[in-house]
Simulated assay, not measured.
Amino acid sequence: MTVTREDGADNSISWQSIRDEMMARIRAQLYAPGELIPNEVDLAAEFGCARATVNRALRDLATSGFLDRRRKAGTRVREAPRRKATLTIPLTHVEVEASGARYAYRLLERKIEAPPPLVREKLRLSGRERLLHVSSLHLADDVPHMFENRWIVLDTVPEIEDVDLSKTSPNVWLVRQAPYTHGTMEFLAEAAGAAAKHLVCAPDDPVLTMLRVTWLDAQPITYARQSFSPSHRMRLEL
């Protein structure tokens, strides 16, 4: 049933239907890239709905990367849609097992020590924090899959100091026990270097390396450097 408000707005129209119609117009280039679209008041009158409904639809399109909304400057269609990528921190054992291989994990080293300058910079450390340095090797069918060099800020997650990391990898423990609020991931191709002896390859062989930093609000949790075997392939869905 359609309910019409006193101001003429039609409560049966959802923000999703408005979003879909606006998306159809963008794809048909009725609103060309870089062009201003009608303002919320005019769109609300056109669709016969409340302005708040139009606002919700446009916010969703902006979040999806199709619109650029600027206060006092209006809303424009983006020249090139900017899609938002959502990444979850991967669990290595899940990835290995999903490929059909048998997973194994080895703790190589664990000690509390001062971090190098790069780690201090990435974690924005003052120099007074206690850090746990852990290096480990992850295998697929007994073949080296990934070498991990990780620094963990004990001031943020002190509980991990009592965890037996020979049985549980720091990656698994942190994902399950130390929720993060934000972080960064960097991917690069580089020579294996010092990781070569663990990955059983030549020091100048190219490998994929992933650098990850996670935070709990303003508190740094961990910096991890993961180097994968030369045969590793990464797949992302867009």
Rank of each mutant, 00 (worst) to 15 (best):
D141T: 10
V54P: 02
Y103L: 06
I152V: 06
R78Q: 07
E46L: 09
I221F: 10
E95S: 09
K122R: 13
V134G: 00
D162I: 05
N39F: 06
D60P: 03
R56G: 01
H232M: 15
E129Q: 13
L36V: 02
P203M: 13
C49H: 05
H198V: 10
A9K: 04
V157Q: 06
N171V: 08
L199E: 06
Q16D: 12
A191Y: 03
L211T: 07
G65A: 06
I160K: 05
M234K: 14
R70N: 15
E186P: 00
V96D: 03
L67H: 02
V172E: 15
Q177L: 06
A195W: 00
N39E: 05
P206I: 14
P81K: 08
I37E: 07
L36Y: 05
P220M: 13
L216Q: 12
A85C: 05
H145L: 11
L236V: 04
A80I: 12
M234E: 11
R212Q: 04
P144D: 10
G65V: 00
S136M: 10
H198R: 12
D68L: 11
L123E: 10
G127M: 03
L43H: 08
D155I: 04
R176M: 14
L132F: 01
G34D: 03
G183Y: 01
V157A: 15
K111C: 09
P158L: 05
H138W: 00
T181N: 02
D10H: 04
P206N: 04
D205Q: 13
T53L: 15
W151V: 06
P158D: 08
A32Q: 12
H145G: 00
S64F: 08
D68E: 14
T86M: 11
T156I: 05
T184H: 06
F66W: 07
A224H: 01
S231Y: 11
T184Y: 02
V175E: 07
L125S: 03
N55K: 12
A62V: 08
